[in-house]
């Protein structure tokens, strides 16, 4: 990262952290929700942007993480104990789903994840004994951190923001590690990577499983943020929103999911004035953006750089 980028990130982060005390509850909630979706989208970026696979099931992993938290915390387990369980389950399920799917064909993962998402939705809706069915699960407690209760919205916002930063740093570290560099090679040119002996299938599978784990973590935070979950939040449309966030931001760019999530989550909020027309306006806005900037919002930076030369 260049110095200018580092400065931009630090300043952006500082502004983001300083804003919420001046906002109403709903604003704080929205900014926390952004963090939660960013976690899931960053994981998806690994799959879509780096490994070059389509996944239409990120919300299923998000849901699995959320239900882990809802069920296990109500049984009395602390949040910080459930979190690694949620991430671990999603990672393992990701491996189990990805292994057969990635052995077949390039586009196969898209179908496998789509089917998986529908399946998870149906399980969440029908296994009423565990999941509460369509009524969902309410009364999910906010986490307690070393004796400090994070009941307040502001306290919880800072906890979530810090967690998002930690997750981002972990992913950055992963991508910069000597073996994680293979992900970047995969993104740049899979055939070249293969010619150097990179095990494409293994790395793609790993990307998918890590991406799933990130969604599980995001889902865990989502459950304690909203404190009430029900299956429809984890159905295919949510997966498509996450995919959209990655693509709109600029897939394969580290900060792409961050920018994309802001657009995809906030745009509908700003478009509330359009009322019943909002979905249509939103759709048009996305189409226009993709036509004008197929590389995502972050590719604007490249354009400016090229234009200045």
């Amino acid at each position: 990262m260049s110095r200018r980028q580092t400065v931009a990130v630090v300043v952006g982060l500082a502004l983001y952290a300083l804003l919420p005390p001046f906002l109403k509850n709903y604003g704080v909630y929205l900014m926390t929700l952004l963090c939660v979706y960013v976690m899931a989208a960053m994981g998806l970026n690994l799959v879509v942007g780096y490994a070059g696979q389509m996944s239409i099931g990120q919300a299923a992993f998000f849901g699995i993480g959320a239900y882990h938290v809802a069920i296990l915390m109500k049984l009395g387990l602390p949040f910080l104990a459930v979190l690694p369980l949620a991430a671990g389950s999603c990672f393992v399920i990701g491996l189990l789903l990805g292994f057969p799917a990635l052995r077949v064909q390039h586009h196969y993962l898209a179908f496998a994840t789509l089917g998986f998402n529908v399946l998870v939705y149906l399980v969440l809706r029908n296994e009423q004994g565990w999941t509460g069915g369509t009524f969902g699960l309410a009364g999910i407690p906010r986490p307690t951190l070393f004796g400090v209760e994070l009941d307040g919205n502001l306290a919880f916002f800072y906890f979530t923001l810090a967690s998002t930063v930690v997750l981002a740093l972990l992913l950055a570290w992963l991508l910069r590690s000597p073996w994680g560099r293979a992900f970047a090679a995969l993104r740049d040119n899979p055939i070249r990577a293969e010619s150097l002996g990179v095990n494409i299938t293994a790395y793609t599978l790993l990307a998918f499983a890590i991406g799933a784990a990130c969604a599980g973590v995001g889902g865990a935070y989502y459950a304690v943020l909203v404190q009430y979950i029900e299956p429809s939040a984890f159905n295919v449309p949510a997966s498509l929103m996450m995919l959209l966030a990655v693509i709109v931001g600029g897939s394969g760019r580290f900060f792409g999911p961050l920018v994309g999530t802001v657009v995809v989550v906030l745009l509908p909020e700003w478009l509330r004035f359009a009322q019943n027309w909002y979905l249509m306006v939103f759709g048009f806005a996305v189409v226009a953006l993709m036509v004008w900037l197929p590389g995502g919002v972050l590719s604007l930076a490249d354009r400016w750089r090229r234009a200045r030369r």
């Binding site: 000597p178 560099r181 293979a182 970047a184 090679a185 740049d188 070249r192 990577a193 150097l196 002996g197």
Partner: peptide, 19 residues
């Protein structure tokens, strides 16, 4: 051309030695 243009020279070498 067969390098990974977005990566550094050292990182390209490291990738070449991934096996």
């Amino acid at each position: 051309r067969n390098l990974f243009g977005s990566l550094s020279v050292l990182h390209n070498l490291e990738l070449g030695g991934i096996t």
